[in-house]
Design a protein around this nucleic acid. Sequence first.
DNA 1: AAAAAAT
Length: 407
Amino acid sequence: MKFTDLGLDERLLEGIDAMGYETATPVQQQVIVPILEGKDIIASAQTGTGKTAAFLLPLIHQLLTHPHETHDINAMIIVPTRELAIQIAETMEGLSYFTSVSSIAVYGGGDGTSFATEKKALTQGVDVVICTPGRMIAHLNMGYVKLKGLRYLVLDEADRMLDMGFNDDIMKIISFLPRDRQNLLFSATMPPKMREMARKILHEPVEINIAVSKPPEKIIQKAFIVYDAQKVAIIKDILSTKSFQRAIVFCSKKQNVKQLSQELKRAKLSIEQIHSDLEQSQREQVLQDYRNKKIKILVATDILSRGIDIEDIDLVINFDVPNDGEDYIHRIGRTARAESTGTAFTLVSEKEQNKLAQIEVLLGQPVPKGNVPEEFGPTPEYNPRKPRSGSGGGGGKKRFSRQRKQQ
DNA sequence: AAAAAAT
């Protein structure tokens, strides 16, 4: 299905064309029409599937074709991270380039001038606001945000926002909004807490299910069963011998990002790190340098595991096994975007074997194990404890914790 | 068990 078949406004089609979009992705095909019909939506869809355009396009179209209050905020998009807010704002700018629809990203960590700029827009009116929760609340508490005309609310990566403890913040923001509005909720997963939130916010939503909790098959996955102490040397080896366009190395802790970055820099690898301890301006600089290919390797926390869309990442390395199985799928999903293929390596220490086993349960299949070259020395066996499969079936006995023996 | 998010 082509975008030209969807009956979208001419000015919007120009923007779509300029962005190089032609064919609607499955998410877009399923979501755009019900949004244009004014329905509330609850959609499970992962990023990289064209999800952002799936809600931006009908939003912009409605604003172009329906009379609306130009001195108010008409649509609010709430997202979990600053980087995601920036990215969506950029897509918004591109798509709406040939239209009169205005937009702004509202998020914390700026240098002081950003707050004033945001305040001006929120006071004088801007069609679409893309925000992180805390910063939006800061503005709302000041009492100047023009919300009377708001007719659209989008919650993106909603499950992630719940994980991050934004439930109360989101409900607080919503308490400021007019009741008569269209609500769009996007979430990779639908745990009970998510359902509960959806029930409070959405009105007779159309349910759309696209996300399969499975990574695309075109990603070549390999897990290396290793000792903790071998990890750094192996990463160095991969990064210096394997050829790739762009690589990203994920760690589960900021501390690990910092340490590993130091080690890699010492090995003369051209890398940058990104995590929330950096100044916001540094975060943006690093991401820009990475997008511009000034640097090819990024070492990151899960701040980048969801939502961030960068082309040509063909190598993802998990220095740590992610804590959450869903995060594994999100992390490796940074590669093999659109038409391309990619490789995802995961280094698994002895302590992390059980986590990998959990992930394999979620995937419904084992992650192929890779062989570590002999030069790195002997490696441990893969011998995880049987992963628990939810609420125990068949009245299994509680297992006593094994004695710990350190060698 | 850790990440991120308001000043």
